[in-house]
Amino acid sequence: MSEELIYTRPESLRERKTHYCPGCGHGIVHKLLAEVMDELGIREETIIIAPVGCSVLIYDYINADGIEAAHGRAPAVATGVKRVHPDKIVISYQGDGDLLAIGTGETIHAANRGENISVIFVNNAIYGMTGGQMAPTTMSDQITKTTPYGRNVQDVGYPIRACEMLNTLAAPVYIERTSIHDVKNIRKTKKAIKKALQNQMDGKGYSFVEVLSTCPTNWGVAPVKAAKWVETAMVPYYPLGVFREEKETV
């Protein structure tokens, strides 16, 4: 009788229980990233930049070198690392507050320089770590700790579409938005992460993958409902797909 091994832990993922809440998207994205690192054989070549956010401890889970950046500064730290080690794989892993609020400047300028790095952007439409305040990607009318009456877009602006915004720049080589709300989309997310890392290995330049993700805890819903909410509320506003595939020639 032959036995098929269904799940093995990727070598790039440490054997350690994460601190993430049940149904949190960070765990899924970590696992995808680790699988891709295994498949590309780059674990020992990778340097991961941790953001400030719930994934601040990513260096405890991904079995590779890690640096913890100040809040929002991961793309700048990644730039520094990459300029020292141009042949290493540098990944900036960030949440929406980190990447699109306090770190908008760093995000745009790293992209505009076409740094040869891969940015993985986990968009859960909220500040997870600090207990559920409004994020730049919080949906219109969404209730959070700092939008107790719902996000009023007339007052605090519209949710920012990161891919579309970065797609106005000339330098990036690859920009895609994916989601983890079901198995099919999780697979697509893995493919996108792989492509982003492959681009970097090939020396192509800046790659950006936005992953629509869940925060059941701060959304105040059960994990299944959270996945559903990504599909029904987020995906229509944040369309999935590839925005950029090749370097624009200007």
Binding site: A101, T130, G131, Q133, K145, T147, P148, Y149
Partner: peptide, 19 residues
């Protein structure tokens, strides 16, 4: 303000009361 623990109750309170 900008959220940060351990003072998050200040912006939360302000977001409720100021309007």
């Amino acid at each position: 303000g900008y959220p940060i623990t351990p003072q998050n109750e200040i912006p939360a309170y302000m977001s409720k009361e100021m309007p």
